[in-house]
């Protein structure tokens, strides 16, 4: 059909434009990491680094604490997302599958939480971490990040739970499966893509966080990568090449992982929907 072909042309053109706008800043980020310092921030912008240098990556790699901070980021994020999503999943099942008094209220509260300006909670979090004597421990960050991840995760997962036709589950129940088993065998696999999508979301809000990571930790050994990156930026001595190199190293694996799980997730979701 010509109509369809036309669609494709428009879509493809639009896709190319999207690609260019989203990637140009990242191209700049990448090329900055490959430039010698005298080509970064010049009055005639250098569009193509020449020669391409990997010295910045060497600097990044040799930076004291780079691997430690990478490890800290991974551990803290994994814990926050793992625990947050775990708790959220159960609540989402309850909210998406049962009616009970206060259910709507609970969901509204989840939205309300999103509306509290995070900056205003800075001092309360600091004071509480002191009261609990956990200031300066990495567990504090995990707790703060769970508080970032949890409300939205419950909310998003609830949507995924609802999207699974209840008939599927009921069929399993009718077949004599126990409710727990129906959850595990039927519901869970169908929501798995949703869990992945939600996790990506939670992952990013913890992975990139800076202010709390900076203030609630006490020593360079506890730095996460954003904090380490920021420590390279001084008023007169910003080593942008190294900063950009580090953020490439920090970003690419995350994006690759997302890409991998996203394709799976989307595939799984459609499969579930169609087979249902």
């Amino acid at each position: 059909m010509t109509g369809r072909r036309q669609h494709h042309v428009i879509a493809n053109t639009f896709g190319v434009i999207t690609l260019l706008t989203s990637l140009f800043p990242l191209y700049w980020l990448l090329t900055t990491s490959l430039k010698p310092a005298n080509q970064i921030r010049t009055t005639d912008p250098v569009l193509f680094p020449h020669p391409v240098e990997f010295a910045n990556y060497q600097t990044a790699w040799n930076t004291e604490g780079f691997l430690t901070s990478l490890k800290n980021s991974v551990i803290i994020t994994a814990l926050a997302v793992g625990i947050g999503i775990g708790i959220a999943f159960f609540a989402a099942v309850a909210l998406g599958r049962f009616w009970f008094r206060g259910r709507t209220l609970f969901i509204v509260i989840l939205i309300l939480i999103q509306m509290i300006p995070g900056e205003a909670l800075f001092v309360p979090y600091v004071v509480l971490s002191q009261d609990l004597k956990i200031q300066g421990k990495m567990v504090t960050l995990v707790l703060v990040y769970i508080s970032f991840v949890l409300p939205l995760s419950i909310w998003m997962l609830r949507g995924f739970v609802r999207a699974v036709p209840k008939e599927i589950e009921e069929a399993a129940l009718v077949d004599g499966a126990s409710r727990a088993k129906a959850f595990r065998k039927v519901l869970f696999p169908l929501i798995a893509p949703g869990i992945v999508a939600t996790s990506i979301f939670g992952f990013l809000s913890s992975w990139n966080e800076f202010v709390y990571a900076y203030t609630l930790t006490n020593s360079p050994g506890q730095y996460t990568v954003p904090v380490l990156l920021h420590s390279f930026i001084g008023p007169r001595t910003a080593d942008w090449g190294a900063v950009m190199a580090m953020s490439v190293v920090f970003t690419v694996p995350a994006a690759a992982f997302f890409l991998f799980v996203q394709r799976r997730a989307v595939g799984g979701l459609t499969a579930g929907a169609v087979k249902g």
Binding site: F122, V123, V126, V127, Q130, Q135, G136, V211, Y214, T215, L216, N218, H230
Partner: peptide, 12 residues
């Protein structure tokens, strides 16, 4: 960001 750091550290 020194102010944020000092705020957290010195109120403890």
């Amino acid at each position: 960001v020194r102010a944020a750091k000092w705020t957290a550290a010195w109120s403890a």
